[in-house]
Computed example of a mutant assay.
Amino acid sequence: MFEYKALSDQELISLLRTGDKYAFTEIYNRHKNLLQNHLYKKLGDQELVKDVLQDLFVKLWANKSQMPLTDNLPGYLFSAARNRVFNHLSHKQVESKFISSIQVFFSEDNYITDLKIREREFAQIIRQEIEALPPKMRAVFVLSREEQLSHEEIAKQLNISSQTVSKQISNALKILRVKLGLLFYFL
């Protein structure tokens, strides 16, 4: 086995292109510190520097067979690192714009307006589902929930038993739960 430290960058690239992991390790050890210092000056965050470096070298290994035979390996690595910094900054800028737009949305009462619209739409859907109930069941349910009459009062008014009133309200609630539950699920 020969000494990898004695090899030139071009020789290491040639070996790397064939899948030589020791050549990869030597390239990493040889250029890691300079890249790390350069990235830290640009990013100012050691954890982010580690992430960018790891990404750079993972991609280098993954694409080893397409690695260009360059006379300037440090320049190639610095360019790759610079591109990753640009990508990171671009991503941060998009992320920042998105967060700002959400903050504007919430601060401009759009959120409350949206909630009010949804509330009205949902109330209308509930009204439609109540209207779709069988006529006697609907009458009992409306007197119970909207007129807020007791079961006995509804029974007297409709000339039915209190037990029938209770059963009709129970059935109406079951039907509405199923229909409105599906609606909630799909929303």
Rank of each mutant, 00 (worst) to 15 (best):
L56S: 05
L39V: 07
S79R: 15
L183N: 10
L158D: 10
F105D: 08
V104D: 05
S65H: 11
Q163P: 01
A23R: 00
T113M: 06
K41N: 14
I130K: 10
I27N: 07
F24K: 03
F186P: 00
N33S: 08
I27D: 07
S100I: 13
H151C: 06
A81W: 02
A62P: 01
Y185D: 06
K32R: 14
L56A: 06
Y76I: 02
T70C: 02
F86K: 10
L39K: 06
S166W: 03
R82N: 15
R145Y: 08
A23N: 01
K41Q: 14
V142S: 05
K42G: 01
Q46K: 03
E3R: 06
N72D: 14
I169P: 04
V142H: 06
I125S: 01
E147R: 11
F106W: 04
S150T: 15
L53T: 06
I117Q: 14
N72H: 12
L180E: 11
A139I: 04
N83C: 00
L7F: 13
P68Q: 02
H38T: 04
N72T: 05
K59A: 12
L143C: 07
R17A: 08
Y4F: 13
I112T: 14
H38L: 09
L182C: 11
L35V: 10
N29L: 12
S170C: 08
L53W: 00
E146F: 15
L16I: 09
E129L: 14
T70Y: 01
R120S: 13
E152V: 14
E11L: 04
F105E: 11
H88Y: 15
H151S: 13
N171K: 13
A23S: 08
I13T: 09
S170N: 12
H31Y: 15
F184V: 08
F186R: 10
L180N: 13
N171E: 09
K59F: 00
Q54E: 03
D51P: 01
K156N: 09
L158T: 07
V178G: 02
P74L: 07
Y185R: 06
F141W: 11
Q10R: 12
L73P: 02
F122G: 05
I154Y: 08
I169T: 10
Q10T: 03
I125C: 03
D109H: 09
K136G: 01
L12V: 13
V58I: 09
Q36T: 10
R84P: 03
R30V: 03
Q66W: 02
L187P: 00
A123Q: 02
Q128D: 13
V58E: 12
F122W: 07
I160G: 02
S162I: 06
N33V: 10
K167L: 09
Q163F: 07
V85F: 00
